[in-house]
Design a protein around this nucleic acid. Structure first.
Lengths: 214, 214
DNA sequence: CCATAAACGGTTCTGTGGTTCCGTTAAGGT
DNA sequence: ACCTTAACGGAACCACAGAACCGTTTATGG
């Protein structure tokens, strides 16, 4: 600390830069990975409101100071977890039939949401997003990625004249997921294969009717 | 309390009965009302994770001991708030046209969810439900009531042959709300009148196609 | 109208979630 | 290979959410 000219030193900004941004390699990356995995486990077990950062630190075998310093609040940790989840994408099916593709998508969503681990994780993550704007932002990005991944099969359907020209692919994909999430979060109606197939069929019917034409 | 034969007295169960159940009149009812109102305000302002029971007590001008005793955890308070919300229902429209009715419903939902107070309240309440099973239960009951209230117009449409026989009214109503809640909670897509009208149109198209026939 | 105890409410106490401090380890530039 | 300092980690510390205690108010049955 001998020759700093402008900002940075002490007392000027509340914090210089986010920790983990200047030296993101080696140890830092390893810590992040371990903490995010531990956070996922903790969320599955205790839900969002039961998320204890000290517990996460213990699971990750990391000092709790580190967790508090890098992610401050529970919501921040979940937000980071979400950006991580958005990166690891699963490949979509492409059968050449819109019904089939959307049904496959719907069933995948149901399988995910009813899976003991994944389902609990999604519920917790959505709870977190409903509590914190920055986490909500991260969640929106996550779904934008997921919707983008599956838009292809709708675009193909439009291409081959199976759907009206100008149909918004994202709207169609979202229309498939929406009823399933509504069951999960709001109505509590059962999430089974029948629900999945109905969701897909409803989206197809609406799309064919031109409801999603921009 | 002179001649109770079996349970009740002391030391048997951890707590005899829930406070507020034996003498629900007068003061108790007044307190409940004030606390629920205050809880609503607090939820709107700070969200579910920022819900502080002491703060609620202060707003309601009630001892914080009372709040802790009667509702124990924040989630319990929200659950009670939800049963209260389920009771005050708004009347639905009945224009005689399925499209019109569903569009009115969709627009009402959008108006509710985008209203600064109501919207925040719903988000907070859903967050609470995503954190606690008993609150989730209360939320499911709430939506069962709301869906039941609007089922009439679908039943009428079936009656007059506007929809296939055997169409499940609840499914149709849920199909209207689902995309709107999906936007609110998951995708973050804008919640405007266009979205409402599309949601209603999609539900109608799917229902006409017989997707919701039991 | 009175007696009983249900429910309320102020105060005090405590466990713990989160912060601060400071020494140690190891990225990353030269 | 070496030096600077970003980032980690243990320990002591603190504020406050939530429980426990006990006296006061007031529903409710007779």
């Amino acid at each position: 600390m001998t020759s700093e000219g402008a900002e940075g030193a002490e007392g000027l900004g509340p914090e210089g830069v986010e920790p983990g941004t200047v030296r993101p390699g080696g140890r830092t990356a390893r810590v992040r990975e371990a903490v995010l995995r531990a956070a996922g486990d903790a969320l599955v077990e205790h839900g969002f409101d039961g998320l204890d950062l000290a517990d996460v630190a213990r699971r990750a075998e990391v000092g709790k100071t580190t967790v508090y310093r890098r992610w401050s609040a529970p919501a921040g940790l979940v937000a980071d977890l979400l950006t991580d989840m958005a990166e690891q994408s699963l490949p979509r099916t492409d059968t050449g039939s819109l019904e089939e593709d959307l049904r496959a998508n719907a069933r995948l969503v149901v399988r995910t949401l009813t899976d003991p681990r994944q389902g609990a994780l999604f519920v917790a993550v959505i709870a977190a997003a409903a509590c914190d704007p920055r986490t909500a932002e991260a969640l929106h990005r996550f779904y934008a990625v997921r919707i983008g991944e599956w838009s292809g099969c709708v675009e193909a359907a439009v291409e081959r004249g199976d759907l009206p020209a100008g149909t918004d692919p994202g709207e169609v994909i979202a229309a498939v997921s929406a009823p399933l999430y509504y069951r999960l979060l709001a109505s509590g109606a059962p999430l089974d294969e029948g629900a999945a197939d109905r969701a897909a069929a409803a989206a197809v019917a609406a799309a064919r009717a031109g409801v999603f034409v921009r």
